[in-house]
Design a binder for these strands. Structure first.
Length: 1095
RNA sequence: GCCUGAGUGGCGGAACUGGUAGACGCGCACGACUCAAAAUCGUGUGCCUUCGGGCGUGCCGGUUCGAUUCCGGCCUUAGGUACCA
């Protein structure tokens, strides 16, 4: 059986083992094993029509090596593969070529699998998943429904079932769990809170609308990125610089009824989770930026030159006898303006004054307890709300506390009317009898306290200006600069703009609003730094300095972030500074010499000036002081904001998962588990149905499938299927659950996940979200999917160019091109050897070039070159199939690893591949004599041979554990070189060495293993372990350096004392030559490392 | 602008917590085999050099007996991100 490692032999070996592995089911993985588990996962590919180029398998090879290595190390290894098979390109292809996405997708998958098979991966194909398979997406839909059936309990910071929420509403209303979206109000009401009794009185639809506001998957009108050309909505991360990431079509903002995932509720947990997982710094940073947490402060500014035109109308009609309700007495300032009906304010004020003077005994008792922040809340008494005067009220928590005199007892009807009015105004009412106050004051107070504690603070939930007078609330991360506020800026869309604009400024504001409206997202992106704006005519009063500053509107303030309003601090903020300069607004310097008059300085280090009580304070310290101050004054509070928005989850597309819901009376209801999957109906019309409806709307019978019952015409984004596929691999054929609990618990987290960094935000965040939700609902015992993530670098292409003389069919060699007028053309890298063009192949390459003529240099045509991304249009694509054809899969695998660190991006250059091929041949030859016959010796290896072996195993084990594959390939080469020069053919060395090589070059290893006489696959063997005893040395060759430069080497025993070494070194000829006999300044001896003589 | 990486021979890249810079491979040069070429094998290969040595890890400076490695300041480059207050 003579054989050399030739092209034909490689083909034979590789094909043989691919078949044999399949036949013997070598890579089938059991869920039932006593071994420790290891889960090595690749990002599953989207099966594009273009097929694989050499860049694609890079990560797959790395994970394959890890998987095989871990298996040899005694782990039960899950290493699956599947396809992210729903998606836009297949659908676009269908529209362009009339081929159904299911057909083209299946064909592409077939092709991918063939290409992958050639490389010899150890995937357990019996676990393959395809996201477009109804058996798979049944569970994508099912998980979606679990999310739909969940809400986020902020108190517990976790998801819970909607049934749980309904119980809470039935018990206590929503005061402990206000709407996640502070702008939402109960339908047909302006209220944001409701009582248990009210919940019960709501009709079904109202209840459903309210519940929708809590669901983690919800349907709502949202601002979406609408791409007219693609006829669909795109997620924020699918829009780049105002155009679609695929195709580069313009994208505009538009309001549409869309499914969204309430990922914002998980912002903090997604952020915290990053600390527990092993992702690269840059990857974590990208996610942190995306989540965009900023800590700051809300501050309310009163609007001054407001001439309100209150329209009490309805309210005024309600009982006017109300004025005389509560007898009372006391002092107190007139803050009622904010809640009182403006028309009656002057009357109410008088009543309040009167009342305070004649307080009941019980009221006095309670007031003593409530006043001066005794409960931690600011309580006012005899405060007018609308046309009523409340006994006590906490404005921030919107709670009215009343002590009923005898009058109320006799008139229950009256109390109800009053409660209902106060509820409408957004207040909760809590009542106590005189008896309770007299006899059980403690309980009364604790009831009040708990009610207050559980009510949301209005400062966080109110939109600026809402409810109370006209005021606007800003969000700032720099409260320390509040004395530097020179103007206010509102987003053009801000609701207060209409209310505060003076008639004089009306035309200007309207003109500006028109301008803003006319600008597309693309325009805005392109001119981000352009300064525009308009003055409203109104002024705001700085709550701390009392300074009046003008209120402007401008595009640079975004409606969607913070409160849509900012305080302009030109000395400290670049944008504010430019704005002030442009519109000639004054600039107050609060940072002294830190401000140079020309540009803003956002420093935190300055000592404040012109800042009243903050003067001579460091900015850093002033931040806390100001936050405390505004909280004390009740005009602001600490606030955390996130940039991240909820994730749009609807696509106006055909080739995706249908939403498993049924609309009745415009309310979506979950389909039953037994009705899943809701299969994608067959269709040949993939064009958008217009009106923002998806292509499914073309199928009228499917959409309106029953009287008064409708389906959703949209489908889910590709992220849906990809958000949980790693769980399905654990138990891919389960028909009763997305995966069996036992399988989920056994496999747990993905131990290593390898894939491209382009999925940093979308896929990885959504996967993390889905896992967190499933964890909260009790399906998983882990809440981060990926323990470790590695981003393989991109392999770039090495392009070649030819230079054509303008207007001719003559091509000039690169070195001479500067002498002519030429056009640069890409040429197929496969017909260029190094830089030298194969001119004959070039003539055959394209008909146009059949008659090409060449101007050569030194008899050769030299091409130009450049590193670019690998792409068909650059003709620089290298197909792995071609490499395998010439060198075999083992060589391809090792060469891809040898190219450089896995995470670095690097250019592909096939030239170096010979080195790896030669190594494998040399390795093969160690086992054979020069006629190709197996020739092994059973003699005991020498100490030198053992040393080489153990050194190699040590290094390779270390390198694989650290994902440093390029250096392990080097180490194998060194080992093969050394053993070759020793002419080592000892079985005791070579047999375990084959096992070590097997993860990298499985085919050759398996063949040699068989030749060594083994029946079973090499992958059931054990990875060799190194033994330190063969590596310990008794002496060391010390480098002797003089003034840090190595001048000589001297061999000393490792246990030789420093002093002795020093003596010998100083006495040596070489050192004497440098010291010229003078005593050295200093001698450093580091045992086992170095000797340094300083002279 | 901001964030995160990276800058080492002709090229891809090594160098563990500061300790012989350039492992391994490609390329190149020379040699062997051959009539010759290819393939293969062997030797050499950071730069300069007056052959003593000098200079060298993007640049400038610092710490140290000793710095690719640590610190400060810059430059270049890749990727991410952006009127986010």
């Amino acid at each position: 059986m003579a054989a050399e490692y030739s092209k034909e032999e490689i083909k034979r070996i590789e094909e043989k083992w691919r078949n044999e592995w399949k036949k013997r089911e070598v890579y089938k993985v059991s869920n039932d094993s006593k071994k420790p588990k290891f889960y090595a996962l690749d990002m599953f590919p989207y099966p594009s029509g273009a097929g694989l180029h050499v860049g694609h398998p890079l990560g797959y090879i790395a994970s394959d090596i890890v998987a095989r290595y871990k298996r040899l190390k005694g782990y039960n290894v899950l290493h699956p593969m599947g396809f992210d098979a729903f998606g836009l390109p297949a659908e676009q292809y269908a529209i362009d070529h009339g081929i159904h996405p299911a057909v083209s997708t299946a064909k592409n998958i077939e092709n991918f699998k063939k290409q992958l098979a050639n490389i010899g991966f150890c995937y357990d194909w019996s676990r393959e998943v395809q996201t477009c398979d109804p058996k798979y997406y049944k569970w994508t839909q099912w998980i979606f429904l679990q999310i739909f059936d969940s809400w986020f309990n902020r108190k517990k910071e976790k998801a819970e079932r909607i049934a749980e929420l309904i119980k809470i509403f039935e018990r206590e209303g929503n005061s402990n769990h206000p709407f996640p979206n502070s702008k939402f109000q109960i339908p047909n009401s302006s209220k944001v809170l409701f009582e248990a009794s009210e919940w019960k009185s709501f009709n079904e639809k109202t209840k459903q609308v309210i519940l929708m506001e809590y669901r983690l998957a919800y349907l709502a009108f949202t601002d979406v990125n609408w791409c007219e050309a693609l006829g669909t909505v795109l997620a924020n991360d699918e829009v780049i610089n105002g155009v679609s990431y695929r195709g580069g079509h313009p994208v505009v903002k538009r309001q549409m009824r869309q499914w969204s995932l309430r990922i914002t509720e998980y912002a903090e947990r997604l952020l915290k989770g990053l600390n527990e997982i092993d992702f690269s710094d840059s990857m974590k940073e990208v996610q942190r930026n995306w989540i965009g947490k900023s800590i700051g402060c809300l501050v309310r500014f009163e609007v001054k030159s407001l001439t309100p035109d209150p329209s009490p109308g309805e309210r005024g009609k309600k009982t006017s006898e109300a004025f005389s309700l509560s007898p009372g007495e006391g002092q107190g300032e007139a803050r009622g303006r904010e809640t009182a009906d403006k028309k009656y304010w002057h009357v109410l004020k008088e009543f309040s004054k009167e009342n305070r003077k004649s307080q009941t005994k019980e009221e006095s008792i309670l007031w003593e307890e409530l006043r001066n922040n005794n409960l931690g809340y600011k309580i006012r008494r005899q405060h007018s709300i609308g046309v009523f005067i409340a006994d006590f009220v906490c404005l921030d928590r919107r709670l009215v506390i009343e002590v009923d005199g005898d009058y109320h007892k006799q008139n229950k009807q009256y109390d109800d009317a009053r409660t209902s009015f106060l509820n409408d105004e957004g207040f909760n009412v809590i009542r106590f009898s005189n008896d309770e106050v007299n006899n059980n004051l403690k309980q009364v107070l604790s009831k009040i306290k708990s009610k207050l504690d559980n009510s949301p603070s209005i400062k966080s939930s109110l939109s600026p200006g809402e409810g109370q007078g006209e005021a606007l609330t800003v969000f700032t991360t720099r409260p320390d600069t509040i004395f530097g506020v020179d103007f206010m800026v509102l987003a053009p869309e801000h609701e207060l703009v209409k209310k505060i604009t003076t008639s004089a400024q009306q035309p200007e504001i309207e003109k500006y609003l028109k301008y803003v409206e006319s600008r597309s997202e693309v325009d805005r992106m392109a001119e981000v730094k352009k300064i525009t704006g308009a003055f409203t005519g109104a002024y705001a009063i700085n709550p701390l300095s009392k300074k009046e500053v003008p209120i402007w509107i401008s595009e640079y303030v975004l409606a969607g972030y913070g409160t849509g309003a900012i305080m302009g601090v030109p000395s400290g903020d670049e944008r504010d500074h430019k704005f002030a300069k442009y519109f000639n607004l004054p600039i107050t310097n609060i940072i002294g010499s830190f401000y140079n008059g020309n540009e803003a300085n956002p420093t935190y280090d300055a000592t404040l000036e012109n800042s009243d009580f903050l003067n001579s304070m460091k900015m850093k310290d002033a931040q806390e002081v100001v936050i405390k101050k505004v909280e004390e004054l009740g005009i602001g509070k600490r606030q955390i904001n996130y940039k991240m928005r909820d994730a749009g989850w609807s696509r106006q597309r055909y080739w995706g998962e249908p939403f498993p819901v049924v609309f009745k009376d415009d309310v979506p209801y979950a389909m039953k588990d037994s009705e899943l999957p809701l299969e994608l109906p067959p269709s040949d019309n993939f064009k958008s149905a217009g009106n923002g409806e998806g292509p499914l709307a073309n199928l009228k019978g499917w959409i309106d499938f029953a009287p008064n019952e409708k389906r959703d015409s949209n489908t889910m984004p590709t992220h849906a299927g990809a958000a949980w596929y790693f769980l399905r691999y654990m138990d891919p054929h389960n028909e009763n659950a997305f995966a069996d609990k036992k399988a989920l618990d056994y496999w747990g987290q993905v131990d290593v996940y390898i894939g491209g960094s382009e999925h940093a935000v979308a896929h990885l965040l959504y996967s993390r979200l889905w896992v967190k939700i499933l964890h909260d609902l009790g399906y998983l015992n882990f809440d981060e999917p990926f323990k470790k993530l590695i981003n393989q670098g991109k392999i770039t292409g090495d392009s070649r160019f030819v230079y054509r003389l303008r207007g001719t069919n003559k091509f000039v060699s690169a070195g001479l091109k500067d002498q002519h007028q030429t056009d640069e053309l890409h040429v197929d890298v496969n017909i260029v050897n190094g830089l030298e063009l194969n001119t004959e192949a070039f003539k055959k390459w394209k008909p146009d070039f059949a008659n090409a003529e060449f101007i050569l240099e030194d008899g050769k045509y030299i091409c130009g070159s450049a590193i670019e991304k690998m792409s068909k249009s650059y003709f620089n694509v290298v197909n792995p199939d071609d490499i395998i054809e010439n060198y075999g899969a083992d060589t391809l695998r090792m060469y891809e690893m040898f190219l450089g660190p896995l995470e670095a991006s690097k250019p592909w250059n096939t030239n170096g591949i010979d080195g790896v091929f030669k190594f494998l041949r040399r390795f093969w030859n160690l086992f054979h004599d020069n006629t190709g016959n197996l020739l092994l010796s059973d003699e005991a290896p020498t100490r030198e041979e053992l040393k080489v072996f153990h050194k190699t195993i040590k290094k390779i084990t270390f390198d694989i554990d650290n994902y440093s594959f390029n250096t392990s390939v080097s180490e194998f080469m060194i080992c093969a070189n050394e053993l070759t020069s020793m002419k080592c053919n000892k079985r005791a060395i070579l047999e375990p060495l084959v096992v070590a090589l097997a993860p990298f070059a499985p085919h050759i290893a398996e063949e040699l293993w068989q030749k060594l006489g083994h029946q079973d696959t090499i992958f059931n063997a054990s990875f060799p372990q190194h033994d330190e005893q063969y590596l310990t040395e008794s002496s060391f060759n010390y480098p002797i350096s003089i003034n840090g430069k190595v001048r000589a080497q001297m061999n000393f025993a490792l246990d030789m004392p420093k002093e002795d070494i020093e003596k010998v070194v100083l006495a040596s000829e070489i050192v004497l030559k440098w010291t010229e006999g003078k005593p050295p300044k200093k001698v450093i001896v580091v045992q086992g490392k170095i000797v340094n003589v300083v002279i």
